[in-house]
Design a protein around this nucleic acid. Structure first.
Lengths: 210, 210
DNA sequence: ATCTTTATCAACCACATGGTTAAACCTATA
DNA sequence: TATAGGTTTAACCATGTGGTTGATAAAGAT
């Protein structure tokens, strides 16, 4: 009895904190730091505005909580390609497929991260201290080795990495632009993105393999 | 006499209007619609805040003026690749080189456009009515023809277009992210981008030619 | 010379917004 | 049951913000 009541309280507490974070994610990721209102977050969470300050002290801190949480979701996705033991070709295939699937589930994420990193590049310093922060070292070495083995054409690992990220992420960052230029609706766009799960990796591999 | 005075006035008038637009570009492109303050724009232009409203009525309209102007700068860049008579291979080469050179000169532009298009996708409807708005039709046909001629591997023109744009634009949209992931400073980043003027087109061409 | 129009500015206004406060509300425990 | 602690709320506050206004000056028109 004692126990259940206690946990109930605790759960309730964590509930609101979590509730706030969820609501804040939605709002911040859609509208950015400057475009978001504390009141809107409170409304979406169904609680009093004061609670935001009670749990997170300030808009800035609440935002950072959301941002860190978002980045923690993305970082492992990037690490996948960098730190497993498959060949570059395998990596590209799996990464592309996984990443695009992931993005379809979290369409606001890449734009959110990129945008707010542009607004405040200092955020990165904090993130870089994080243990899970992606490191390119292994990937670069692996590319160099496979080039030497003659499996790949001469390729700069860093540029290859930029290419992979660009091809995978850009359509999600610039969705409205691409929809507009291609004059496609939601459904057609989804189809295009779906196609890219295989198309992008084929495109990359065709370019770098001998 | 009458004439000179008249023009002087006119010039002065256009001067402030232009002054405002320049200042507004700087501020809006750096901070976005929500992050920008009318006062800051006025200060940067060295005039009274009321003048902004005198010439552009509202923040929204001033912003739209800036946005349209920015897009008008970018649209011809995109059209270059779509509407000239060179081969796809030539197009890719020239586009990549020109576009990256262009981006280096206007680093805030792509992010600005993408971001604000995300914020308000309706903007596109207005832009699409513009005569200079890029159309993919010709490019798609050309790709289909060159595929049939056997010069290119089977390739979807639209996906190819998305790939070209992604590879060229993304590094400018996500500069801080890429700098962070690659752990490079300003100078090294510039070098990487410079390399991409040739690297990207080679990358694309290697992938699509037989 | 006088009237009208245009450009410019300081002062102002209404309202939104992030943040604070003080009181109320549970609920466990003594 | 009374106390104490964390939780929640309504009311408030200070400031920032887009936008307005009325005055002023300069220039053109009559």
């Amino acid at each position: 009895m004692n126990f259940t009541v206690n946990t109930m309280k605790k759960e309730k507490m964590q509930d609101t904190e979590e509730l706030i974070l969820e609501a804040a994610k939605e709002v911040f990721q859609k509208k950015g730091m400057d475009g978001s209102r504390m009141q809107e977050i409170a409304d979406k969470a169904g609680i009093n505005k004061s609670m935001l300050h009670y749990y997170y002290r300030s808009k800035k801190l609440l935002f950072e909580a959301v941002f860190t949480s978002a980045f923690s979701l993305v970082a492992p996705q990037i690490n996948k390609i960098l730190n497993d033991d498959s060949t570059i070709e395998e990596k590209v295939k799996r990464f592309t497929h996984n990443y695009i699937s992931f993005m379809v589930k979290h369409p606001y994420l890449p734009n959110f991260i990129i945008q707010e990193l542009n607004r405040n590049p200092k955020f990165f310093e904090k993130l870089q201290e994080n243990a899970a922060f992606p490191s390119l070292e292994k990937f670069e070495k692996q590319v160099a080795i496979e080039v030497e083995q003659g499996r790949l054409k001469p390729t700069d690992g860093r540029q290859l990495f930029v290419n992979i990220i660009s091809l995978n992420v850009f359509p999600f960052v610039a969705t409205p632009l691409i929809k507009g230029l291609l004059r496609v609706d939601d459904n057609e766009f989804k189809k295009l993105v779906e196609e890219r799960k295989t198309m992008v990796s084929e495109f990359i591999i065709a370019s770098i393999t001998k």
